[in-house]
Write a protein that binds this DNA or RNA. Structure first.
Length: 491
RNA sequence: GGUCUCGUAGUAUAACGGUUAGUACAUCGGGUUUUCAUCCCGACAACGCGGGUUCGACUCCCGCCGAGAUCACCA
């Protein structure tokens, strides 16, 4: 049975750089019909951020990464918050003490700093093992006693070679110089990540540890602990970093990495986010670019995860989002896309009914890159735009026409459009074609004039559709208003 | 500095000893009766360097260079 986990620290939001370590384990578990677990690693009380866990859960759910066990949903391995699992870690720690592989260390922080400085000055690699205190030789009973007094517990390392396999990076090995006496249980009684995750993954029967490559250098120490505990380790899946757009550093909050939910609030669809992120550093060998969750569940494979870092490219995310926007409209219809648009319309849209909003959406949707574009692109459908003649006169097609010509063009246009009995898109197009023939103007001239007069927006959908949706009364009123404005301007 | 990892166009990637080194985004140009977008067509653009192995290397080996990660009572 395949079991994977996402194990974040509740220190803030999930950003673009680390959400892949939730997506990939989810896919690994689900494509094998296994379980995906959410475990909260809150052993560092200093870094704990109120509300972070809720935000993490909200983000996962938004992306469609539902977990089978864990925080918020419970399960057979409760609790799923490490801060509540203290006794479990202590139980395993005692095993280590009894085996003579852990010792309580009364050395104070200042002394440790001195060791570090001295080694640095002597240009010797710092290893705590080289400064191991005499207490490390105490009997298990005495270690237990000292530990109960409040000293942190350290692993008693043994220098030796390690080699192991990483499902992404391949075969790896290191020499004895990287093993050290790392802290297992802190002075506050809570475990360090280094110890806690090993215990938890074992107890929760996790089969694949999916995490960033930054843990690679700690691997020998983890392997030593697995060995001392006498337990088998899961498979290791190390994910290369997501790099910031600039430079070669990994994407981090410090460099302004945005939260996943920020993108949601800007109008990125979860499908697009999942699609883009899944394909950042992974591909199935085909030339497919668009993957749904369903597609990913069949196409994904650990072996094809890239082993070099991948740069985050917001432009391609936007492109992916545009594809999904159109895909949802084309395949599922306007209702499906409309359901995603709540909160993105201009404020004035609220006084119009849903069917009108859907009409607007139907003619504008293929111009959207993000849903928040609705706010800037659809305003003139909900309120009369401010008449700005400089925009009209300054248009590259209209600037060669005199004001009189513009007025005359608007006059014949209004006349012809007024004569339309049935205000349909087809009849409107027919009228526009006739006007073109009658006035002898180029489409660029006549249509630019009408378009600007109707919208005063930098762009709009096809004219006949725009007028159809705006309706006869408003379309004609706006054309009249602009004609009057030009007449007044000329006077 | 020690240890470890990575290295195909601006970006993401394909190739698993033999191709004019493919695709997508971006950029530039063109087309579809106006704009913007969609759609279509086209262009530009890459194997970090040097040795080997081989009839033949992006692919295998070695060295170098470059980039990154990590050396916490953080995860």
């Amino acid at each position: 049975m395949t079991r994977t986990r996402f194990a974040p620290s509740p220190t803030g939001y999930i950003h673009i750089g680390n959400v892949r370590s939730a997506i990939y384990p989810y896919l690994i578990a689900k494509q094998a019909d296994g379980q995906f677990i959410l475990r909260i690693e809150d052993t560092d009380q200093k870094r704990y951020v109120e509300g972070a866990t809720d935000l993490i859960m909200e983000t996962l759910r938004w992306l469609g990464l539902e977990w089978d066990e864990g925080a918020g949903v419970g399960g057979p391995n409760e609790p799923y918050y490490q801060s509540e699992r203290r006794e479990i870690y202590h139980k395993w720690a005692r095993k280590l003490i009894e085996a003579g592989r852990a010792y309580a260390d009364p050395t104070d922080g200042a002394t440790i700093d001195e060791y570090r400085k001295a080694d640095s000055a002597a240009k010797v690699p710092y290893l705590y093992r080289n400064h191991r205190p005499s207490e490390a030789e105490l009997s298990p009973e005495e270690v237990l006693k000292l530990w109960e007094k409040g000293a942190p517990l350290r692993f008693k390392s043994e220098p030796k070679d390690y080699s192991w396999h990483d499902e992404v990076i391949g075969d790896l090995s290191t020499g004895p110089e990287v093993l050290d006496d790392i802290i297992l249980i802190k002075k506050d009684g809570l475990p360090t990540y280094n110890f806690a995750h090993i215990v938890d993954d074992y107890e929760m029967k996790v089969t694949h540890i999916v995490r960033g490559v930054e843990y690679l250098s700690s691997m020998p120490n983890y392997l030593a602990i697995y060995e001392a505990l006498g337990i088998n380790h899961p498979k290791f899946v190390s994910l290369p970093h997501v790099l910031a757009p600039q430079g070669n550093k990994k994407l981090s909050k410090r460099d302004g990495a945005k939260s996943v939910v920020d993108y949601r609030d800007e109008g990125i669809l979860p499908e697009a986010m999942l699609n883009y992120l899944a394909c950042l550093g992974w591909n199935d060998g085909t030339e497919q670019e668009i993957y749904s969750m369903k597609d990913l569940l069949t196409a994904f494979s650990i072996e094809r995860i890239q082993n070099s870092g991948a740069r985050f490219d917001e432009t391609k995310l936007l492109w992916t989002n545009g594809i999904w926007l159109r895909k949802i409209f084309d395949e599922e219809g306007v209702d499906a896309l409309y359901a995603r648009t709540a909160g993105f319309w201009p404020a004035e849209a609220s006084s119009y009914d849903v069917s009108y909003q859907k009409e607007v959406l139907s003619i504008i949707y293929d111009r959207l890159k993000v849903l928040s574009d609705l706010g800037t692109m659809t305003g003139y459908f909900f309120y009369d735009p401010e008449i700005d003649l400089s925009l009209l006169f300054g248009n590259k097609f209209l600037k060669k026409l005199s004001e009189k010509e513009l007025v005359d063009l608007l006059t014949v246009t209004i006349e012809r459009l007024s004569a339309i009995a049935d205000w349909t898109a087809d009849n409107l197009q027919e009228a526009l074609n006739e006007l073109l023939a009658k006035t002898g103007k180029k489409p660029a001239e006549l249509f630019s004039l009408i378009r600007i007069a109707l919208s005063f927006a930098p762009f709009s959908p096809a004219l006949n559709l725009t007028m159809k949706v705006l309706g006869r009364e408003r379309s004609l009123a706006r054309l009249n208003a602009v004609r009057s404005a030009i007449v007044n301007d000329a006077a």
